[in-house]
Design a protein around this nucleic acid. Structure first.
Lengths: 238, 238
DNA sequence: GCAAAAATTACACGGCGTTCAAATTTGCCA
DNA sequence: TGGCAAATTTGAACGCCGTGTAATTTTTGC
């Protein structure tokens, strides 16, 4: 009767492990990233603090897992939104990606802070942690968006001649070159700029700076993304 | 012999108060914003924790003062850099402002985090705190930059018709209208977008995301600002 | 029924903000 | 110059929180 490769014990274990993350999310959503403590999680789960150590060796391990999960969820949302727009409409795809980023951030402000802001007091990310994977995935997606517009974009962007492959992280480059043969290094620089452009207003909004000055952050963001699309030689969707 | 309006006691008091802030800065620079604790400050000053309460009623009061000071120093640096470029060169002024923002942030990463990121665990900003003033001052500076380019910029920016004064914070609007008579509301929206554009790459760099992917963040940022200047119908400085 | 896994209990250790009476220092004025 | 009142600082304490460890008990699967 043991058709499953995982034993019942393993399944329970995985379930508890997932519940820990779920609770951690809720705590984070309620009280910010610094509300994530093993004791609070245990309290919320009706467990004892010590029991968590059967699942995560240390608090930072849990945080690392959390960051990775959150980041992955963001990237997957963006990719899904992009793929819902036909590839023949590169401007629409950029807009979809950008809007998803903002909407995801507004729906998961604490997740955004966890990934893009100070993670948690006292937390030190491990070297080349699992978040790196999501980061590269995000960068790959953005590079794809840029490549789709490259023919029109390149002449509009002087100063892109000054980049070489050595200017970028080796792991990222290997990944990108495999994905996009013939990719010019300048396109990666442009992708990073696109990233920064999407990030700026969203970060300001999430941290409360934008909304203190305007009641229409969505319109401002929308205009900014339209201008971004235009700067790539594309026609922004109406 | 009491020629001074401030008594000796007041001067000493102000000096100690300033030293508290200085130490707080050093702690923040060394260990991040969450290293700011009254006990640590007192320890570093050779005082007792309780003594601080003669100067700041509560920890959050100190943090609030700190944020205000840091923000003001940033805005003043940006204004100074702007004023060092002749008003006849609006593109150069934008570049100066942008470069100063990035350089200031790199020199004061913890200050940047304090102002633009999660301040400190457990800190709740007071309603309409003194940081608001610095924020409005920054926005005023950016609006000035945009206004200087408005003639060329406006035709390049469709979609700017949809803004009204009600879309923005009343206090900010009053301030801006006094400073720039005849200011169109759309220029404020554009200024916010310029802000976001400068902020994005800097935030990513400060939080370690950009440098994980490229070794040339300065070049990327420079290109981005050049494109920003171009999008306002100006010619970026060589 | 029995060994292994998981949870509990209890503990050590450290940090924080904040309060308060008591002691000390200081500025000032007679 | 001496002394006094006010400002300042101390030192201890309170209460709360956190991470992490180890021995012990309970639960669980086989």
């Amino acid at each position: 009767m043991n058709r499953q490769t995982t034993s019942r014990r393993d399944r329970l274990r995985a379930q508890t492990s997932a519940e820990i993350k779920t609770i951690a999310f809720q705590l984070m959503a309620a009280g910010g990233p610094d509300a994530i403590s093993l004791r609070a999680i245990a309290r919320e789960m009706g467990m004892t603090a010590g029991a968590i150590y059967s699942y995560y060796a240390t608090r930072d391990d849990l945080i690392t897992t959390l960051i990775s999960d959150v980041y992955t969820s963001l990237v997957e949302a963006a990719e899904a939104a992009r793929d819902a727009v036909p590839a023949a409409d590169p401007g629409g795809r950029i807009l979809a990606w950008a809007q998803t980023l903002r909407e995801w951030a507004l729906a998961n402000p604490e997740g955004f802070r966890l990934v893009y802001g100070d993670p948690v007091p006292g937390y030190r990310p491990p070297d080349g942690g699992p978040a790196k994977e999501a980061e590269q995935r995000a960068c790959t997606g953005l590079t794809g968006l840029v490549i789709a517009a490259w023919r029109q974009a390149e002449p509009l962007q002087p100063g892109l001649r000054g980049y070489a492959w050595e200017d970028f992280d080796a792991g990222l480059v290997a990944h990108l070159q495999a994905e996009f043969p013939g990719l010019p290094p300048a396109a990666v620089a442009l992708a990073l700029r696109v990233w920064g452009r999407m990030h700026g207003l969203v970060a300001l909004e999430i941290y409360g700076h934008l909304r203190a000055l305007t009641h229409e952050p969505a319109a401002v963001y929308r205009d900014e993304i339209s201008d971004l699309i235009r700067s790539l030689g594309l026609t922004p969707p109406a």
